[in-house]
Simulated assay, not measured.
Amino acid sequence: MIFTRKPLLEILNPFVQTKRLRGKINIQKPKPPHFVKATYLALTKPFFHNPKKNLPLIDLCTKASPTRKEEIENPFQKILAQEALGYFQSSKLIAFYHANPMNSIDHFKAFAAFHKEGMLMKGLGKKTLEMAIKGTPYEAVLDIYVSRNMIVFSSEPKIKQLLKISKRFPQLILMAGVYEGKFLHIDDLIKYSSIPNLETAQAMLAQNLKSSASKLHRQLNSHQTSLLALLNDRQKQISDSSE
Rank of each mutant, 00 (worst) to 15 (best):
L8A: 15
L9W: 01
I11E: 06
L12R: 15
T18N: 08
G23I: 12
K24G: 10
N26L: 08
V36K: 04
T44E: 03
K45P: 03
F48H: 04
H49Q: 09
P51I: 08
N54F: 10
N54E: 14
P56K: 02
I58T: 12
L60Y: 04
T62F: 08
I72L: 15
F76L: 09
F76Y: 10
Q77H: 14
E83R: 04
A84V: 05
F88E: 00
F88W: 01
S90L: 02
L93P: 02
I94T: 02
A99Y: 08
F111P: 01
A112E: 15
F114E: 00
L120M: 09
M121T: 03
M121S: 08
M131S: 11
I133L: 01
K134F: 03
P137L: 01
P137Y: 01
E139G: 07
V141E: 00
I144V: 15
V146A: 11
M150L: 13
M150H: 04
I159L: 12
Q161T: 05
Q161F: 06
K164Q: 05
I165S: 01
S166T: 15
L172M: 05
L174G: 15
Y179L: 14
K182D: 13
I186F: 14
D187P: 06
S194N: 09
N197I: 05
L198V: 05
T200A: 13
M204H: 05
Q207A: 15
N208S: 13
S214Y: 13
H217F: 13
N221F: 07
L227S: 06
L227Y: 11
L230V: 13
L231W: 13
Q237N: 09
S239W: 02
D240P: 04
D240Q: 15
D240H: 15
S242M: 04
